[in-house]
Simulated assay, not measured.
Amino acid sequence: MDLEVSNEQKRIQKSVREFMLKEVEPIADEIDKNDYFPEDLWKKLGKAEILGVNVAEEYGGSGYDVLTTVLVMEQMGRISPSVALSVGANINLCAHNLEKNGNEEQKRQYLPSICSGEIVGCLGLTEPEAGSDAVGIQTTAEKTGDDYFLNGSKTFITNAPVADIALVYAKTEPEKGAKGITAFIVEKGFEGFSVSKNIEKIGHRGSPTGELVFNNCRVPAENVLGEVNQGIKVMMRGLDVERVVVAGMALGIGEAALELALKYSKQRRQFGEKICNFQLVKAKLADMYTQLEASRYLIYRAAVLAGNTDNGGKGTVVHKIAAAAILFTAETVTKAVDQSLQIHGGYGYTMDFPINRFYRDAKLYEIGAGTSEIRRILIANELIKRGLGY
């Protein structure tokens, strides 16, 4: 399997990196401090063709593959994990699912506006009593005439406070369990739909997170995404891609942590010399680099496999590889930011050095998109069921 990044992909990496350095890095600390995502940034991201990187050209995007999407999110995560998280939810959880499962009319109605930054999307799955147990959702959708009426709530939803559309899972036939779930496209202005609050977090501040509330929310039957009672297929189809894209964001955080540690250790002097010359500091830098490189190639391999499967190929090994990629990367990055902060010493524990942001942001990746515990269970189940796969 060829995991080399092409010249075109390198060009895209460079372009995204330059955009982030120009438009986001100068305000990254401000975004974190004020817990606010600049409204004008969405259209700037659209103009830079970042929001449509994974959407087909006929719907206003660039039509790149999963690996390229991962490379984009990696570069964004190196500068501002908060911006990366909101963009990832918009282009992956919303746009990707919409393109893969929507009908032609739905795709033409929403995707061009997502790509341009005119509208923002989110995905509503997690509920107060349904996190790791995703199919245990309690939100219901009852059909009356040509409409469905949704009742329930979703929580910890990235982009909820600013989203114009939400892909929402609800049970149309609760007695059927997982086989009675349907996905819907819900617009911000629909009657009975509201966002109850903006949830304040310790990390990824600036990426708005909130609760979606449905109180007899009327949704036209034409806004069913996919087929009625087939929402589990929509849900599961995008999970492998979601895991590798999220892993790319986490990798960016790890790279930033290593960069900051290396820079600081070459400047900081103790006992008459730079601390980068101390053996224990060298060991930390070497371990961080080695583990991040291992993460990189695991992620890139998973991205290629997920991309092949996403485009109609048959894949089984991708399920455990994608889960392994985010599992290993998330835990590697948690260690990396911890060691980077340790190298910074007392300064790292202050709000004056950027490592504090990455330190707080990193933990999410052991929790979001399926906890580390769930990932381990998934990998083990796949091994028991299908073997090693090579």
Rank of each mutant, 00 (worst) to 15 (best):
G313A: 14
D338P: 00
M235Y: 13
V70Q: 09
N229V: 02
V234T: 09
T290F: 12
S62V: 14
P112N: 05
E127A: 08
G370L: 03
G124A: 13
I31F: 06
R301M: 12
V135E: 11
G46E: 10
D146R: 12
V304E: 15
M76H: 05
L292S: 06
E142A: 09
A294T: 13
R108C: 02
G63N: 07
K314M: 11
M73W: 07
I384P: 01
S6Y: 12
E293G: 00
N159H: 06
Q291S: 11
V195G: 03
Q291L: 12
A323Q: 11
K284Q: 11
K201T: 13
L167F: 10
V72M: 15
I343Y: 09
T172N: 13
P26K: 03
R269M: 10
G145S: 13
E211Y: 02
I50M: 08
A250N: 05
A330G: 15
L298H: 02
F353E: 15
P220I: 00
T350E: 09
L378C: 00
T334I: 15
V83T: 04
S86M: 04
A160D: 04
I326F: 11
E99G: 02
E200P: 00
M235S: 06
D338K: 15
Q109K: 15
N216T: 00
Q9G: 03
E255Q: 13
C94N: 08
A306K: 08
T139P: 03
G307Y: 10
V245T: 02
I181K: 06
I27Y: 01
P220C: 01
A163N: 05
R376D: 01
G102R: 07
N90L: 04
D240C: 04
V213G: 02
N34M: 10
R301K: 14
S207N: 06
N151F: 07
D146Q: 12
Q339G: 01
S132F: 03
S340T: 08
L262G: 01
V5Q: 05
L225N: 07
W42N: 03
S194G: 01
V24C: 09
M351G: 00
G210E: 07
